[in-house]
Design a protein around this nucleic acid. Structure first.
Lengths: 161, 161
DNA sequence: TATTGTTATACTCTATAACTATA
DNA sequence: TATAGTTATAGAGTATAACAATA
């Protein structure tokens, strides 16, 4: 358990991370705002999935997911077909045009980071990724399932100090 | 310099951190939305400052800062007095009521983290804080001072294409 | 002329609630 | 009845631009 002042600092860091997020959004093409880009990236990377799964990965409400998906479907980057196993559901799949756009966006964002994080090592970036994944997992698990999940935080096997 | 796939992963982590941010926002009192809370916290912890300094610490445009500050000033949590040294500027200072609210909010957010990050060590949290501060610093420095502005078309927030 | 700060406007992201269709 | 997904609506956060006052 960390000191309270560390938690206060973490709250400030989280609330200030928006600046980085906006830096990332600025390098995206105008036709694909960051919410749509996130949806496209997840469908592109994890493969075909249903709306509910995507909403879970995006960590937003399904109504929000629905809007983002509608945007990318309208532009032909994702294909939304009925699920034969459950006709209430729809299967999302990236299209060739979507793959092309996704590659382009990945190139832009990695270029941005390669430029701005020039002096970070691979380990630095990897560590930050791990900690962020673990943070999100802990906070969202707690929100959903209530109170005692002390041993469920993912991201890496804990080493007892 | 890190591997490109690490950068792609970082982009996804950053875009998903909103879930944590919203978890934080949910524990705040309804009268004080997260933008105002951030402004109050910075003035409360760093002491009196001018609008421009607060905008820098918040990492948002001064117009946005102005709105958040107006909100907290209206509610008597921050006092906004003219700067005798430069009458264009205004000095922000937290009020006793603001201190009280800030203490309450700090208690709520640290309680939330103490509950959800129960198995994180002080070093874990400290390391994440350090990496986040460094990340923000690198990204925002580049935006302002960096050499490559080819993607920063003036007057337009995004690239086309 | 340049800088500090405010206001008007517009856009993105988000959740809640009401709704449709299917299980 | 319950669940998957859509749409309407409302609220928060943000940036740009036009503006006022002062340096």
């Amino acid at each position: 358990m960390a000191d309270r002042s560390q938690y206060e600092e973490l709250a400030r860091q989280i609330s200030a991370i928006g600046a980085v997020k906006r830096g990332l959004a600025r390098v995206l093409p105008a036709q694909c705002p960051s919410g749509s880009a996130a949806a496209l990236a997840l469908v592109g990377r994890y493969g075909e999935m249903r709306m509910s799964r995507l909403a879970e990965l995006l960590a937003v409400d399904m109504s929000v997911t629905s809007r983002h998906v509608a945007h990318v479907v309208d532009r032909g980057w994702i294909e939304r077909s009925p699920d034969p196993d459950d006709r209430r559901s729809r299967i999302l799949r990236i299209t060739p045009a979507g793959e092309e756009l996704l590659d382009d966006m990945a190139r832009r964002t990695t270029d941005m980071f390669a430029r701005t994080l020039k002096d970070w090592t691979d380990e630095d970036v990897g560590l930050l990724n791990t900690l962020l994944a673990r943070l999100r997992d802990c906070v969202t698990e707690k929100e959903v399932h209530g109170y005692d999940h002390t041993n469920r935080c993912a991201g890496r096997p804990r080493q007892d100090t």
